[in-house]
């Protein structure tokens, strides 16, 4: 009887060790995947700011306020889908948010991926009048 209990205990320890290792390995893979997606999200954010926000200038930024849109990072024939969310607000010369209109607008783009609830990348640009 004692031998059986000891054998059972040993099996439990080995199984627990294997499961812990499996979970650790999955965490590493998840981190690798997230870092890869962050690099792509960064490319998406920078391109959106340069191609969409900068050309419209100070006055045109209003159209981006609270705008949400889907976009893709495409490599050859593969695409990864992301969601962009824009925030536009007035800031003063010190960069603090202002409730009244100023000559500087801060445009922030947050890029999300369906695997995560928080944005992978947030990019902010100040655009003056």
């Amino acid at each position: 009887m004692p031998q059986s209990l000891l054998a059972f205990l040993a099996m439990m320890i080995a199984t627990s060790s294997a499961l812990t290792q499996f979970a650790a390995s999955n965490r590493v893979r998840e981190e690798m995947m997230k870092s890869e997606l962050e690099i792509m999200a960064n490319a998406v954010a920078l391109e959106a700011v340069e191609l969409q926000a900068v050309p419209v200038g100070f006055d045109g930024l209003t159209q981006f306020s609270r705008l949400k849109e889907n976009t893709y990072f495409t490599v050859e024939n593969r695409s990864e889908s992301f969601r962009k969310e824009w925030t536009v607000k007035y800031v003063d010369s010190s960069g603090n948010e202002s409730q009244s209109p100023t000559d500087i607008r801060e445009v922030t783009i947050s890029v999300y991926h369906s695997r995560y609830t928080r944005p992978l990348v947030e990019h902010t640009r100040l655009i003056g009048q």
Binding site: M32, M33, E36, I39, M40, N42, A43, L46, V54
Partner: peptide, 13 residues
């Protein structure tokens, strides 16, 4: 490998 490649991109002005 789980991820054999890294893709990077940027658009500059």
């Amino acid at each position: 490998f789980f991820l054999p490649e890294t893709n990077w991109g940027i658009t500059l002005r």
